[in-house]
Design a protein around this nucleic acid. Sequence first.
DNA 1: GTGAAAGCGCTAACAC
DNA 2: GTGTTAGCGCTTTCAC
Lengths: 350, 350
Amino acid sequence: MVTLQDVARAAGVSIATASWAVNDNKNVRIPESTRRKVRKVAQELGYRQNAMARSLARGQSDLIGFISDGVATSPFAGQVIQGAQDEAWRNGKILLVVDTNGDAGMERRACSFMLERQVEGIAYSSWVHHAVRPPRDLDKVNSVLVNCFDSEGRFPAVVPDEVQGGRAATDLLLQAGHRRISFVNAVDPSPASQGRLQGYRDALAAAGVAYDPNLVIRCAADQEGGYGVVEQVLASGATAVFCHNDRTAMGLFDALRERGLHVPEDLSVVGFDNQEIISAHLHPALSTVGLPQYDLGVLGIRTLLERGAEEGAEDAEDGEGSALAYKPIRVTCPTVVRRSIRNLAPVSEV
Amino acid sequence: MVTLQDVARAAGVSIATASWAVNDNKNVRIPESTRRKVRKVAQELGYRQNAMARSLARGQSDLIGFISDGVATSPFAGQVIQGAQDEAWRNGKILLVVDTNGDAGMERRACSFMLERQVEGIAYSSWVHHAVRPPRDLDKVNSVLVNCFDSEGRFPAVVPDEVQGGRAATDLLLQAGHRRISFVNAVDPSPASQGRLQGYRDALAAAGVAYDPNLVIRCAADQEGGYGVVEQVLASGATAVFCHNDRTAMGLFDALRERGLHVPEDLSVVGFDNQEIISAHLHPALSTVGLPQYDLGVLGIRTLLERGAEEGAEDAEDGEGSALAYKPIRVTCPTVVRRSIRNLAPVSEV
DNA sequence: GTGAAAGCGCTAACAC
DNA sequence: GTGTTAGCGCTTTCAC
């Protein structure tokens, strides 16, 4: 292994000068010629910094922990991590990712591991948007919740704006002229099912359409669920359906086709989640509202880093007592228009 | 921050003894009482090892790099990483994951980053099984290729056994009594399309069924591809189809349904990949052959670690010249039986 | 058995 | 401007 010492010796300078030259430290004035020489020698010798030693000396690791409960199981987690990684990288940090698979013991161990590694913060994420009780150790370090939140607001959190998303989905249908719109929601209460319902109601209200509880149908949030509610949907007399997610829509598509019915001629459909593998490839392709996964990752890390910077600044204020609980940052869900909506009316400017 | 020094002082022992007690070092004889006292003090003080300092002193980082070209984009990558992480963890190592998104510059930077971090090895993985040219830096360290390989065999590689998988898929159909079996393959040549075709032919040959090139249909390996070849499939007179992947099968399902045809009554179908979100939820659910993603990850890391151990042992042998190229390790693809196959004959013992 | 002390490779005061 | 040097927190050899 080539050390800085070797480089310094070979370049005929002191180890300090070598360090400055290699790091291109502007605070110290070294002639450009020396800088170049050192760097050339370093290159030739195949010198590579030892980040361990550097971190130890500087008291800064440039590491950020990322705890996820399902990179493996969920098609969503990957995008979140990608966003987080990109944002971290942009700030000269690197992500230490651990997938706990939802296991609490694993979570604790992951935290320890990260803290031992001197991470500068931990992003704790869940693949499904819900309330969580993060491991105790999490408040020992600058941390942030991604796609989840703690009810007490002890941590900053970044989550998708389910209400806005539900409203956007419904608006898509309203704008196409539909007035009798069914909402096939998930049975289980969750930020998603509650928020999207709220959004659905908000959209209807804004459009002056009365809310009819009979149009809200509930089922398991997957293909089988959607497949099973087809009769209810048809019986409701709706001309359009907003499905809780793309999987439900996929099941509904299957059931409709078996009855010889066509989307969007017989029924317009909007999904949620934008699971590309489904939504982009159904026949016809499904209009839907996407989850801002990548952005959640980016904003999570950004929030973490900003808070880290503040912490450095605030000398007086003692964090412990800061009574004001964090309000989750809500991220907009993007609309994705495809072919599953039939236009009943000429598009009006809304 | 509580250091080992603090613990030692508080426990009234030397820093060395404290280190031994904390690490429960068996090579040195310290009375159990002292060990316990030190550990108790450490606990009380909230002491936590500094992995940076430890690594620096021991010259061992316990870090393994994992480069992937698509955690985000692919539903496959997640499982591979999960397997890799589990196996690493089991050996007291932690994974440093970087997603390069297929960008060569990013790959190089990721390598540098990892080498600076003193990783003990790098697993380089691709989400699609294919030949790769890994970044130059990769041979500076113990490394392994996962779900990909280099043509020169310079690195150990772990890949799915496409031939066995293709054979398994075809066997499923043969065992159900089908003799006229179509293979809807991908157009592009790849280890997957070539291997699965080979497996298809092997299975037919073993069953004494003549290979008929007319039964091999080619299309894009996605839903649109499968949707588009329905006429060809029907015209071929096949009673069963082996699709290159689940997405193709999904497209085919849609096209069949639009023609009022049913799976498996009118046509039996087998997919490949076992993309659960599709295969488990089609109507009927799709029989398929899974990719051994988790195992690829596990075996990748295991291979890495084993090679690392060997390296330590082999003093005499100079690795550089070892002419024998690595042969990829082929991992068995598991069969997943669901409802999309019609039994033509009573099951015979095979 | 236990402690003193010499590093691990690098950074950053502080001299000169 | 450049070099000297004291750490960063921990491990481990070598005395006692």
